[in-house]
Amino acid sequence: MSTIDIDLVARLADLSRLEFSEAEKKTLQGEIGRILDFISVLEEVNTDGVSPMSSTMSAETTRAREDVVTEEDKRDAYLKIAPASEMGFYVVPRVVE
């Protein structure tokens, strides 16, 4: 049975920019432990000499495009859907204290 320390749950939550109640952390601890058990079955597979596969694409099926600007300027349209904007900028909470 895989276990994951409750402090690690808190650390992961912080890294994930998520907050949980103590009860939720306990639930996550259990669920993550069960999922780690489930995925740990991969340990039994011999992968010596097998390269990791990050994509199913091959060089024959993809090509590079010219390095040119393709996006049109839609600044106003993007700012319009922002939670807050002013004078052509996104308004965000103070970044530098």
Partner: peptide
């Protein structure tokens, strides 16, 4: 992250706003 589109829940600072919006 609540900055450019979608839901934003204001927090005490930037990181807190990220956390609250995402949570």
């Amino acid at each position: 992250d609540g900055m450019r589109f979608g839901l934003r829940i204001e927090g005490e600072n930037l990181a807190d706003t990220y956390r609250k919006s995402r949570s």
